[in-house]
């Protein structure tokens, strides 16, 4: 595990370069270029606001019947979810796509998951100001709890990285995972309180439903963001603390599996 963290310092330049390559290449060639980093979440916000805010009309009292309130709530959970799902989906093809590099140049393969999670994290960070600007524009109060959001990001980063290491190593050898995960991510999305709040009547009435949601680490992470950005209340630090510990265990496990399978990458990719 120590070896893993050393990668960060030893290969800092490489990670930095590859992350910026990812970010630069993403919108290179398009007319609006980097602006898309902001436009994408913005358009996503518009779509979800129209569909869920105006057409489906949330009945939950938490939004006071205001579609814009719902849009802000939705956005504060959706933004980190996009980061997370991108990491999971990229992980399943990471070794395959970068096989060319792994076969020809000597560098530690764990750089790839690190780059994937980090690049998507930076991308997520571009969305945060948009959320804040919209809150100001719509007169939604921004509280000091926003300052706690980096802690939530740390938990999510750790969790995503652990999962990315695990999935990338496994899918290099078992390609079926790629298709399986695409479906699991969709299911996972609905099993996380993003389009509905935890305070939803159905969830509060059925203890088993709440218990299931609580088993999902992303529930606590997303709730953390929603409280910091939308509700303006204390993040669920106890549950997030437990999630963080679990994430560290996952990171250790992911790295262990990754390390054991690394010799197969060059042949499998």
């Amino acid at each position: 595990m120590k070896a893993f963290f050393r990668i960060y310092s030893e290969y800092r330049a490489l990670i930095k370069t590859l992350v910026s390559r990812e970010l630069k290449a993403r919108y290179r060639g398009s007319i609006l270029g980097f602006l898309w980093s902001f436009l994408n979440p913005l358009l996503l916000l518009v779509v979800y606001t129209v569909v869920f805010g105006f057409i489906l009309r949330p009945r939950d009292p938490a939004f006071a019947g205001n579609p814009f309130n719902y849009a802000l709530f939705l956005f504060s959970g959706l933004l980190p979810w996009v980061w997370f799902s991108a990491c999971v989906l990229e992980a399943t093809t990471l070794i395959l796509i970068n096989g060319n590099i792994l076969k020809k140049v000597m560098f530690p393969a764990e750089v790839l998951p690190i780059v994937s999670v980090t690049a998507n994290f930076i991308h997520f960070l571009f969305g945060v100001p948009i959320l804040l600007v919209f809150e100001i524009a719509l007169g939604h109060p921004i509280t000091p709890y926003v300052l706690l959001s980096p802690l939530v990001m740390l938990v999510q980063y750790t969790f995503s990285l652990g999962l990315s290491l695990l999935l990338s190593a496994l899918s290099a050898n078992f390609r079926d995972l790629q298709h399986l995960m695409a479906n699991i991510v969709t299911l996972w999305f609905f099993a996380t309180p993003i389009i509905y709040p935890m305070s939803f009547g159905v969830i509060q009435q059925h203890r088993w439903l709440k218990a299931i949601l609580y088993l999902n680490p992303m529930t606590h992470i997303i709730e953390g963001y929603q409280r910091a950005f939308y509700y303006g209340s204390m993040i669920p630090y106890k549950r997030l603390g437990v999630t963080f510990i679990l994430s560290l265990i996952l990171l250790w496990l992911g790295y262990w599996v990754f390390d054991r399978l690394r010799d197969t990458f060059v042949e499998e990719a």
Binding site: R21, K24, A25, G29, N100, I101, K103, K104, V105, M106
Partner: peptide, 17 residues
């Protein structure tokens, strides 16, 4: 190693980068 040249070149970005 001059094994495969240009490994890791990204087509979308410039030669300099």
């Amino acid at each position: 190693a001059l094994i495969e040249l240009g490994a890791g070149f990204h087509p979308e970005i410039s030669g300099r980068e």
